[in-house]
Each structure stands twice: as structure tokens, then as C-alpha cells.
Design a protein around this nucleic acid. Structure first.
Length: 270
DNA sequence: ACCACAACCTGGCCGC
DNA sequence: TGCGGCCAGGTTGTGG
């Protein structure tokens, strides 16, 4: 589920809630959620840790701990984070429970159990292979051009490749390609510099709007306090199959590229 | 390096 | 009510 804007929303909301909070006890109810170290070691080593800073790289949330370790969270499709008062018990979809010294609990919930948590000394062990951060100032159209123009596969699949740009997922890829007027089936090496420049701008625009709106809530994603995001109300093509294109009124089409649903206006994207 | 496809999981929805 | 099939904000591993 969550892409860069949803993960960034969690980062912004976790920081004031958890800075300096101390972990008293950790319980793992579904061991394969823990990617490293073992679930047992994760429980042991997390006890007594204290949260310091809150970072993000692509779709990875990085919770820096005062011990110099980092707790890394990837929500994959249906991961959620919640902070509850002591009386709220974990439900059947809560797979990792952090009990804090002040009595509150941090719940990792995940209906499909695809998400992963790591406790590592060096965050780069997990996020080191990601491509550039699209919202950093140093991410330029030239960077995107170098990454795309030597690739032959379709541009939609390339945008989902996290080693090319970090953080773009299915929603924001479709929305960016629509705004840039580019057919998602086009091969990377056929894009002109002008098209790549438009795409660079569109990627940054949709990601920033997504963050401003608190992310896109379609099925599972909710913010830390349980509130929905609002960017789904501004989607122009994503899951709008058959509805009129907001620019030209032609019906939006759904196709499949790289096993993923892809939505486009057949008239505005070429 | 690229592609197609399966796997990891659960649950909602649709048609029969 | 039940069952099969399809769908879902992601990633990784396999084999060709």
C-alpha cells in the first residue's frame, strides 16, 4: 500500500509522538515480519531502546535509536502503525507490539503480513541500494534521464523500479505519467529530454501533493491517529477506469504492465 | 540485462 | 451459504 507520501506522513506524525520514548517490552506474534535479526533477538535487543530521530528513504521508515541502531520499517501493501493507550489490546492483525515505558503501545498491524522490520547497526545495509530521493534538491532531470534513456522496458515499470527512483509506487507512477502526458507503455529509451523533464516535474508534484494531503487512503492505509489521507480525492486516473478524463473526457483505460494495474487516458498520453 | 511469472498473505467483491 | 475467480498503495526470487 504505502508509497513515499504515506510513509512520509507516518514519519511526520511519529516524530512528535515518539521522540525520547523508551521501549520497555517487544512482542512478536508473527516471526516472519522480522527480517533481521531473528525474531527472538529482535525482541531482546529492542527492549530498553529509546527513539531519537525519524527518517525515511524511499518507502522505508527509519527510526533512529539512541543506541546508534536503527529500527527500519517497510509497510509493503497493508502495513499500518498505531499508537494506543495501555487499555487497547492488540487485535488479530497486530503482529509486533512495542510496549513503551510511559504505558502507551506502538502496534505494527498488517493484514497481508508482507511488511518487514529490521533492527540494524547501519541503515545502509537495508536501504543502500535505493535510487535517488525524488524530493531532494539534488535530484535533477539529468539524473532521471541517465537512468531512463539506457533502459528498454516500459516507463511505468521503470518508475516502479526502486533503484531508479526511490519511493514511487503504483498510484503516483500512474498519476505522474498522466500529468506528464506520457503513455506508460513507452520504452524508457524512446523518451525525449522534454518528456523526461516533464516527468521529473510531475513526479515531484504528485509526491508533494500526496504529502500535503496526508497520503492516499484507498483500502487499508490510515494515518497514525486513524484518520484517512485525502489525496485519493485528487487522483486523476488511478482506479478511474471508464470515468471521463479530467482533461478531455475520454474514458480512462486500465491495462496491465509488469503485473500491475495501470491507468491512463488514451487521448492525453502518447 | 531483460522478461514473465510465482510467491509471500488475507479479505472483499462478483457471478453462479 | 458456499465456492471459484479476480482484485489489492510491494518486493524478491526463479528460470528462460
Amino acid at each position: 500500500m504505502p508509497e513515499l507520501p504515506e510513509v512520509e506522513t507516518y514519519r511526520l506524525e511519529l516524530a512528535p509522538a515518539l521522540t525520547n520514548a523508551k521501549v520497555k517490552l517487544v512482542e512478536v506474534f508473527w516471526p516472519s515480519i522480522i527480517a533481521a535479526p531473528s525474531a527472538e533477538q529482535f525482541q531482546t535487543q529492542m527492549a530498553g531502546q529509546q527513539f531519537a530521530d525519524f527518517g525515511r528513504r524511499g518507502k522505508y521508515l527509519i527510526l533512529y535509536l539512541k543506541s546508534d541502531h536503527a529500527l527500519i520499517v517497510h509497510l509493503r501493501m497493508t502495513g499500518e502503525l498505531h499508537i494506543h493507550p495501555p487499555e487497547v489490546l492488540p487485535d488479530k492483525h497486530t503482529h509486533v507490539l512495542f510496549s513503551l515505558a510511559d504505558g502507551r503501545t506502538l502496534h505494527y498491524r498488517d493484514q497481508r503480513k508482507f511488511g518487514r522490520l529490521w533492527l540494524v547497526k547501519d541503515a545502509d545495509m537495508v536501504v543502500g541500494r535505493l535510487g535517488p530521493e525524488p524530493l531532494e534538491d539534488n535530484f535533477s532531470p539529468q539524473d532521471l534521464s541517465i537512468a531512463l534513456t539506457k533502459r528498454k522496458s516500459n516507463i511505468k515499470s521503470l518508475l516502479l523500479n526502486q533503484s531508479i527512483v526511490a519511493g514511487v509506487g503504483n498510484i503516483y507512477a500512474d498519476e505522474a505519467l498522466f500529468r506528464a502526458g506520457i503513455d506508460p507503455r513507452r520504452n524508457g529509451n524512446t523518451l525525449t529530454e522534454a518528456e523526461i523533464s516533464a516527468l521529473h516535474h510531475a513526479i515531484r508534484t504528485v509526491l508533494k501533493l500526496g504529502i500535503e494531503m496526508g497520503g492516499s487512503s484507498l483500502q487499508n492505509y490510515v494515518r497514525l491517529g486513524g484518520m484517512k489521507g485525502n489525496f485519493q480525492d485528487q487522483h486523476q486516473v488511478f482506479r478511474k477506469t471508464g470515468q471521463p478524463c479530467p482533461r478531455c473526457e475520454a474514458p480512462i483505460e486500465r491495462i496491465v504492465l509488469g503485473q500491475r494495474s495501470t491507468h491512463l487516458c488514451p487521448n492525453c498520453q502518447s
